[in-house]
Simulated scan of single mutants.
Amino acid sequence: MFRDLLHEEIAALTARIESTPRYTGAEDSEGIRLRGQRGEACQLLARLTARYPELDGPGPARG
């Protein structure tokens, strides 16, 4: 369940990053913050699957 939530959070952060304007001052700092959050979520997912290898695999179905 936690793995699926992390996959969903990473997908949501990625979508927000892609919709954030780049190189426009304050908006760029927002992109940096979002990329940092996505990095943290990816690290948590990597640690989770390293500890529980049976959880490694595709995330939730997107539809």
Results as ranks from 00 to 15, higher is better:
residue 39 G to W: 14
residue 45 L to M: 09
residue 19 S to L: 04
residue 16 R to K: 08
residue 54 E to H: 13
residue 9 E to R: 15
residue 60 P to I: 14
residue 40 E to N: 05
residue 54 E to D: 14
residue 5 L to R: 14
residue 6 L to R: 12
residue 27 E to W: 15
residue 58 P to A: 14
residue 47 R to N: 04
residue 38 R to K: 10
residue 16 R to Y: 02
residue 5 L to C: 07
residue 63 G to I: 11
residue 29 S to M: 12
residue 27 E to M: 12
residue 2 F to A: 07
residue 49 T to K: 04
residue 24 T to L: 09
residue 54 E to P: 00
residue 34 L to K: 05
residue 6 L to P: 00
residue 45 L to P: 10
residue 40 E to Q: 13
residue 61 A to K: 12
residue 12 A to L: 10
residue 54 E to N: 05
residue 31 G to F: 13
residue 49 T to D: 01
residue 1 M to H: 10
residue 19 S to I: 02
residue 54 E to G: 13
residue 52 Y to T: 09
residue 19 S to G: 03
residue 47 R to Q: 06
residue 44 L to M: 15
residue 47 R to C: 01
residue 3 R to Q: 08
residue 20 T to P: 03
residue 10 I to M: 10
residue 57 G to S: 07
residue 43 Q to Y: 15
residue 57 G to D: 05
residue 39 G to H: 13
residue 47 R to V: 01
residue 42 C to I: 14
residue 21 P to Q: 05
residue 33 R to V: 08
residue 59 G to V: 10
residue 9 E to C: 12
residue 9 E to N: 08
residue 39 G to F: 14
residue 31 G to Y: 13
residue 15 A to Y: 02
residue 20 T to K: 01
residue 6 L to Q: 03
residue 30 E to K: 06
residue 7 H to K: 03
residue 1 M to D: 03
residue 48 L to G: 05
residue 43 Q to V: 14
residue 8 E to R: 15
residue 59 G to S: 06
residue 12 A to C: 04
residue 58 P to H: 04
residue 7 H to V: 04
residue 27 E to K: 07
residue 58 P to V: 10
residue 8 E to N: 11
residue 13 L to S: 00
residue 12 A to M: 06
residue 16 R to T: 05
residue 40 E to D: 10
residue 58 P to E: 13
residue 40 E to F: 15
residue 1 M to T: 07
residue 26 A to R: 13
residue 2 F to C: 00
residue 57 G to H: 08
residue 40 E to M: 11
residue 55 L to C: 03
residue 17 I to Y: 00
residue 17 I to S: 01
residue 35 R to M: 10
residue 63 G to L: 08
residue 25 G to Y: 13
residue 9 E to F: 14
residue 52 Y to C: 02
residue 50 A to T: 13
residue 26 A to S: 06
residue 30 E to R: 07
residue 45 L to H: 06
residue 50 A to E: 09
residue 35 R to F: 06
residue 12 A to Q: 06
residue 48 L to S: 02
residue 32 I to F: 15
residue 13 L to N: 04
residue 60 P to G: 06
residue 38 R to N: 01
residue 26 A to G: 06
residue 46 A to C: 03
residue 55 L to W: 14
residue 22 R to G: 01
residue 25 G to H: 12
residue 32 I to H: 07
residue 54 E to V: 11
residue 23 Y to G: 03
residue 13 L to F: 14
residue 62 R to F: 10
residue 31 G to Q: 09
residue 1 M to Y: 15
residue 15 A to T: 03
residue 3 R to A: 08
